[in-house]
Design a protein around this nucleic acid. Sequence first.
DNA 1: CTTGTATCTGAACAAACGTTCAGTTATCGT
DNA 2: ACGATAACTGAACGTTTGTTCAGATACAAG
Lengths: 223, 223
Amino acid sequence: MPRVMDVRGHVAKLRRFWRRERRLPAYSEMLGLFGYQSKNAVAGALQKLEDLGFLERKRGRAVATAKLTGSLRLLGTVQAGFPSPAEEELADIMSLDELLIRRPEATFMLTVQGDSMIAAGIIPGDMVLVEKGGTPKIGDIVVAQVDDEWTLKYYMKDREGVRLDPANPQYKPIRPKRSLVIGGIIKAVIRNKVKLPDELNVARGALKFKRLVRDVSKSPLGK
Amino acid sequence: MPRVMDVRGHVAKLRRFWRRERRLPAYSEMLGLFGYQSKNAVAGALQKLEDLGFLERKRGRAVATAKLTGSLRLLGTVQAGFPSPAEEELADIMSLDELLIRRPEATFMLTVQGDSMIAAGIIPGDMVLVEKGGTPKIGDIVVAQVDDEWTLKYYMKDREGVRLDPANPQYKPIRPKRSLVIGGIIKAVIRNKVKLPDELNVARGALKFKRLVRDVSKSPLGK
DNA sequence: CTTGTATCTGAACAAACGTTCAGTTATCGT
DNA sequence: ACGATAACTGAACGTTTGTTCAGATACAAG
């Protein structure tokens, strides 16, 4: 019966504004942003946005939720593919930080240089999220310092004690003699530049990779 | 000569407040938060935080920067290890969203189910960030729909035209007959649960993996 | 075409905001 | 021990905020 509010448009405008300014506009700014003449119209729009979960009210002020500011729309699986544009709106919106980082004050990001964890799917150039302070479980990948050398290894235990295993037979498992410092536990792996690796594209690389993995079964890992 | 302000403490308190409320406190709230009696003290503290890059002023109001709200401290390489606690403060703080997502309105996250890209380091359960709308370059990994089936493949071209290559010799390269829809280009790969894979732990798995990769050199990818 | 109703206008309002300034306090460096 | 000075107190101020209310408006449904 009555006319309808352009909620979708408002959300898009607020998103752009947030991106530019990292804040929500005040009522007076929303007047221009939404094209209203009255602040009461803004109040009505904000009420609707709050009902839809884009905002919360705190201390008489609008606060953006992750649904508004988050930059990631979560879909299903690759097999399911992309939904139709209409359905896209329904996807949950999240922030990668909330998704991956539980203890921000203890989480660091390091870049991987060596190929010692390559069989675990961690390639040189990958970034790893490291959480300090926890107790590693067997099979966790840890950043560890053994004799003044920092490395990435599987955290393992057997009859003889703690053992640090690489995921590459070119390197040997390490048994800490004197000092072992667990810097942190790998909580996530992030690859930013996704490209066809050269190793798979040239025969020389393919042979090298093939040899590398064949040796895995002889290593302590392949036990 | 004069006394010194507890800037580090203030930052920590603001971070905790932001985490809880997704906003900055008002001056009156900072009174209690920082333990001041006068709003002018708050103003001084905020000025200092602005100089240090934790805040900006917009419309007479403090706006948190990524340095304050970001949840990730960027360090160097794994070999470099962890800096001393004093140096940790100097690390750049970022948000994963800003780091990985350039066009938030066009970026989606999908979960990988199959193992068709396993040789590219993309394991079942991994999440991929897909950006819609771009033109894929050769070697890009794309989400493509071929004959009503969505898959993850390398985007390749040769004399015969477009070819979609898996990174697993168990699957065959695909040549689109009638329909080819490029859903988007993979911009990042994210692994959330980092664990020792079973395949590396049991001999059967190791053999299977070994065989898999040996075949890579015979596949079109290994040319 | 008519009618109901959500949407919007316009103005008035109290509350809260951040700023300012003169003066006090505490502590670091000498 | 002392002096210089940044850190802080306390109160007053103008501005902007979001809210409220009565009334006008435009559109979808019947």
